[in-house]
């Protein structure tokens, strides 16, 4: 019998069509509303910063792929560009270009490629890069330009441009009551290029969930956690602790909820694990914000810490099909 030059392999012989490139490109698409709002708020500086970050990310990824002897075609999946984009969207629009380059380099080289590249890193590389920047030049990356179109009836004009979280921490929660939640939600607050605009981020997040790129469990768990834990604090003493809605729209909370926490590699896989992961992130966020010193980066620190516990969240899963009852405990151990 003669071979007919057919491909012989194991099933499945068809594929659902999902790919890493599709995942990454969709996340970039989901960021477009946030980028648009950032450019509207902060002007050309934002465009410059984004361009620098994406270019630097691609260059660093290419160099690392070459150094690690991996095919450079992996660049096409867009994961490097996404990392650079996510990092720069958390930075102020007028940050010096070399800070962006160092931050993106730290993300790609230390946070991502040294661990083995996509899928192998234990911590979200974007947050790793940001933390390295925070440790090195806290003054440069926590100095926020005032959004071009911001109108905060009187009070904020007299204050240096600080994020609403910083103002709450420094001048007390009464001060934070004077910000309109709606204004903050629409993006009229000092902050990172892409992390100020709550509405745009929610649009992007819903798009991602609808396209099945991220699962709904992490964001829903995170938001529920903000309401539960922030609500508990607020209920105990509203004059001491801000309302959960304030926590939700200020700082990078929404950015973290939809773009950093559900990151595939560093979030759990199982349904209940994801929900619990979101809840724990939210609880830590509220605790760090209320009692800690780095209130501004609370959500990111919470995610970074929770990334460590992802293997434990992965153990929360249903029993394996058809396993005898007596060894179900053994299955849980495995």
């Amino acid at each position: 019998m003669k071979s007919s030059g057919l491909i012989v392999d194991v099933g499945p012989h068809i594929h659902g069509g999902n790919s890493i490139a599709r995942t990454m490109h969709n996340q970039i698409i989901a960021l477009i509303p946030a980028i648009a709002v950032g450019v509207y708020m902060f002007g050309a500086g934002a465009i410059r910063a984004i361009a620098v970050a994406v270019a630097a990310a691609v260059v660093f990824e290419y160099l690392m792929l070459r150094a690690l002897k991996k095919p450079a075609s992996a660049l096409a999946d867009g994961s490097a560009a996404l990392t650079g984009l996510l990092l720069v969207l958390m930075l102020p629009a007028d940050v010096p270009w070399w800070v962006i380059v160092v931050g993106v380099g730290a993300s790609i080289v230390i946070g991502k490629m040294l661990f083995g590249g996509l899928g192998a890193y234990p911590f979200n590389p974007v947050i790793v890069g940001w933390v390295i920047l925070l440790l090195s030049w806290p003054g440069l990356i926590n100095k926020w330009p005032r959004p071009n179109h911001m109108q905060w009836g009187g009070i904020a004009e007299s204050l240096p441009a600080q994020t609403t979280i910083e103002i709450m921490k420094r001048y007390g929660v009464q001060m934070s009551d004077q910000f309109s939640i709606l204004d903050s939600f629409l993006g009229f607050q000092p902050g990172g290029i892409g992390s100020v605009a709550g509405l745009a981020l929610v649009i992007g997040g819903v798009f991602l969930i609808a396209r099945n790129i991220i699962s709904w469990q992490v964001p829903v768990g995170f938001i529920a956690g903000i309401f539960i834990f922030g609500g508990i604090y607020h209920a105990v003493d509203p004059t001491m602790y801000a309302s959960p809605l304030f926590h939700l729209v200020s700082g990078t909370t929404l950015f973290c909820i939809f773009f950093l926490a559900p990151e595939h590699t560093t979030s759990p896989n199982t349904k209940w694990g994801k929900i619990l992961f979101g809840l724990c992130c939210a609880a830590l966020t509220i605790v760090i914000r209320t009692h800690g010193t780095h209130a501004n980066g609370s959500a990111r620190f919470a995610i970074l810490l929770m990334n460590l516990l992802v293997p434990f969240f992965d153990r929360i899963r249903p029993p394996i099909l058809g396993l005898p009852k007596k060894s179900k405990e053994a299955a849980a151990d495995a």
Binding site: V102, A106, V131, I132, L133, L135, S136, W137, L140
Partner: peptide
Amino acid sequence: MPFEFMIKAPG
């Protein structure tokens, strides 16, 4: 501008 990350513990 010193890259202060290097002289801290994680650095």
